[in-house]
Simulated scan of single mutants.
Amino acid sequence: MRHLNALDPGASPLDYYGYELRRHRETAGLTQKQLGAIVSYTGSLVGQIETARKLPTAEFTERVDAALGAEGALIRLLPLVLRYQLPVWYRKYAELEETARQIYAFQPQLVHGLLQTEAYARAVFSVMSCADVEEKTSARVARQQLLVRARPPMVWIVMSEAVLHQRLGGTDVMRGQLAHLLTCHQDARANVQILPFDAGGHAGFSGAFTVFRFEREPDMAYTEDYRSGHSTINQPEVQELSLRYAHLQAAALSVEDSARLIRRVMEDRYGEHHAVA
């Protein structure tokens, strides 16, 4: 077990967060138990987060930041802490998402991570791995903050119709997930197109991929499989994937027709009369 005084703020973003939490708490003259009582958490949890044995949540961070008068310091640290929980091979992708001005993605099996609800993300990680499910779920949901920041990227996502029918987490989870996709459409946070079953053969059979466009940097492409991912700035590869994406967009339903299909599947497959998972 890590001793409180041995905490090295340079060891990881999580250690640094714990160090800063402890520093602000001690400056405020509060014990862990007193701070916990103020923010409606246990003193034990405060101690676990201070010693980097527990991952902070967004709610915890917002409460302690306000209680300690940290002026957003802990809130600004949280995305870095959560990103560090991502698999090493995936962190590069998260960095590309953060800096891109345009994101074009194809996802044949799952709802794209930027559009997943917390419950759906938890179901995905529960299937893929039994370890650190809550931490991975928090990290995935935290990525979505880029959609609501002052200057969000333009996001276009094509997903196979199979994604709507693949039941993950049960009926309630899927109903909530499809309702969330419709909310994203209404709020213009992302442009979602569904590639229908009737499209037949298509340019996405090789798997999920993303094309990123930046203000000053060259375009990049990212491909992934079950366990790893690969990014490239090789322009012939990027152009090939860009062309493939254009074909997928052309074969997919329009944004409005896609929303109608999502709503129909939500009602027919996951409606109240189908409440048994």
Rank of each mutant, 00 (worst) to 15 (best):
G47Q: 08
Y93D: 00
P153E: 03
L147H: 04
Y120H: 10
G47H: 08
G113N: 02
I157A: 07
F125A: 05
S126D: 08
W89N: 00
T99N: 00
A70F: 07
T99G: 00
W89H: 06
L96H: 02
Q145G: 15
P56Y: 08
L55S: 15
V88F: 04
I38T: 13
L82R: 04
A119S: 09
S126Q: 09
R101H: 05
Q144D: 03
T99C: 01
I103Y: 00
Q116A: 02
V155M: 03
T51H: 10
E95K: 01
K33R: 13
F125R: 05
A123C: 09
L82G: 00
D132G: 11
L86C: 02
R53G: 13
A73G: 05
E134R: 04
T31Y: 14
I38Y: 15
E161M: 02
A70Q: 05
A67I: 10
H112E: 04
E59M: 11
V46T: 12
K33G: 15
V81L: 08
S40Y: 10
T42N: 11
R91F: 02
T57W: 10
Y120K: 05
P79L: 05
E50C: 13
E98W: 06
L55T: 12
S160R: 00
A37H: 11
L86P: 00
Q34H: 07
P153M: 04
G36V: 13
I75N: 07
V127K: 08
L78R: 02
K54R: 15
R101A: 06
R91L: 00
S40F: 10
L78I: 02
L45Q: 14
A73K: 09
